[in-house]
Write a protein that binds this DNA or RNA. Structure first.
Lengths: 304, 304
DNA sequence: ACCATTCTGAAAGTAAGTTTCATCCGTGGC
DNA sequence: GCCACGGATGAAACTTACTTTCAGAATGGT
């Protein structure tokens, strides 16, 4: 019987729309059509009856109901009122900055900056909003109790993995990051009960990372996935799933906002772990800070 | 002639609840009972079915419908979504969270998450706000015209440097990141006019980075500094200075928010460069994306 | 006491939402 | 190439929610 994978359920009142767009790739085609309508204009969707919406999505009512269930709602009326609530909450930014939108061709730098910052900040905020503290807590506990933590990530997610490793190391936790698949597999094979393996992948489909995590799990380690898509392959080999909430654009394929969201989650876990052992962590930080002191040059008035 | 009590229709999105309490005295007793429930807890009312609400108000469904009409709604479902929307709107902003504040000792994870996300998002937004588009433009131009770009950074800033390098590389620009000081110095020594050297340092005092940037400048390269402190040593060896705006806390010495701010700036520069040569950059991105395709596992049907 | 008017809920009626099920389609095994 | 299987899908049956109708009860004026 499976180790019940606990997807951090979008919790309480907010983030449904994000949750839906995260789930989008894992939905069936007909459901995707519904989802797109809903995401495109939640307020409008809330106004429609189920039959109406089904027609607009060129599908049957049954599919709309299936869609409701897929995104974790009981039924259509429930979805409807949640959508209304969310639509009301987001008092859309007045200007024409399409959330998650592409950068218009003729954009000048000022526009580009505004758009990127807007999307990045959003991704961070929304990720935090939908992050389930309970799941985080369990992950923190796992890391805290681990004799060793392995962190995996490829490409852009590799930087995040590396960053996490370095952070844990600075507070005296034994953590590793393996940029190379083979070494990573070897390392994962040596994990055991009480150890923790963290896999980071924006898409959740990076086979290398999934494989390594799988390996770790097979050895009895507690596995954690950090991804943007709660139903992606990586979540199937994870005991705990933490999701980011970045709506990526086409042009910014590097998954830019996603990276920031990942870092935010990493920071939260890090502070969580550090907070568990406050004095020790602080000492460790001070010592490591001192270690690089000689590589600093004078001046720089620290703003307090 | 019936006195069609046409109450000035509550207009558009807001004020329904107020409107209802205004009309309350003019309603019939049974309707008043309904109204009181609704006003007392709109969100709760929105969750109930008409039968449920009728029972709670000790009356019949018919009366609830009459109530809907009395307050200017078409029917119960309409009332329901309006109530949901209003209830959602009236949630106050996330209380006084000290900007840049430390994490309080007794904090639980939910608080930690909120604080970190808040600070991170602020750092990103504020960085974008104070970023000078004109300077960015010049930096973008310099990078765009460079035959080679060197990027330097140590510690946490090293990840950012590395990230920037990888991004530029993905769109076909020749860029390097040197994690090691000696190699970096060697590389910097080989820079020439028309090349660009970028130094990243949160504090602006990392001697390794400053030295290398200095070296690059001496060789005639255009130098760019990315730091949080506009008066720090690194700015003295830079032709262009880009600043982040992160207010760091004491405990979070890892300069967590700063890193996100740096990444945002990097993203802006990157998109700026990419936008200069749109089709070529897009092609390059597509090619590199394809290159990793075989390392993805199925499932997650990507929409379109 | 009587009628007119309004209020009210039961019950009938209609529309919305939900379930079931047969069919279809693509995939993988033989 | 064929077949079995499983998921996806919509038609139709079904259930529940919502709306209307209507007759009785309450009120209030004469």
């Amino acid at each position: 019987m499976a180790k019940t994978t606990k997807v951090s359920a979008t919790h309480e009142s907010s983030g449904l729309i994000l949750h839906i767009s995260g789930l989008l790739p894992s939905l069936s085609p007909a459901e995707q059509r519904v989802a797109r309508l809903v995401v495109a204009d939640p307020a409008d969707a809330a106004r429609r009856t189920i039959t109406d919406l089904a027609t607009a999505a060129e599908t049957s009512e049954a599919t709309v109901i299936r869609f409701c269930r897929s995104v974790g709602m009981e039924g259509y009326p429930q979805l409807r009122i949640r959508l209304a609530a969310e639509a009301a909450r987001r008092v859309e930014p007045p200007d024409a900055r399409v959330v998650g939108g592409d950068i218009p061709p003729g954009a000048d730098l000022a526009q580009i900056i505004a758009t990127i910052a807007f999307n990045d900040a959003r991704a961070v905020e929304e990720t935090a909003e939908q992050l389930d503290p309970a799941v985080c807590e369990q992950v923190v506990d796992a890391i805290n109790g681990a004799s060793r933590v392995d962190i995996y990530g490829a490409g852009a997610s590799g930087f995040v993995a590396s960053d996490f490793q370095q952070k844990l190391h600075r507070i005296g936790r034994i953590a590793f990051y393996w940029p190379d698949v083979h070494t990573a597999l070897t390392s994962a094979a040596l994990l055991g009960k009480g150890d923790v393996a963290v896999g980071i992948s924006h898409s959740g489909t990076t086979s290398d990372v999934v494989e390594v995590l799988q390996q770790g799990r097979a050895r009895g380690a507690t596995t954690v996935a950090l991804t943007n898509f709660p139903r992606s392959p990586i979540t199937e080999v994870a005991d705990y799933v933490l999701t980011t909430a970045a709506r990526e654009t086409t042009y910014r394929s590097g998954a830019m906002a996603s990276r920031l969201a990942q870092l935010t989650v990493v920071d939260c876990l890090f502070v969580g772990v550090a907070a568990r052992n406050r004095t020790k962590a602080r000492r460790a930080l001070e010592v490591t800070a001192e270690a690089v002191q000689t590589h600093r040059v004078g001046a720089a008035r620290r703003s307090k």
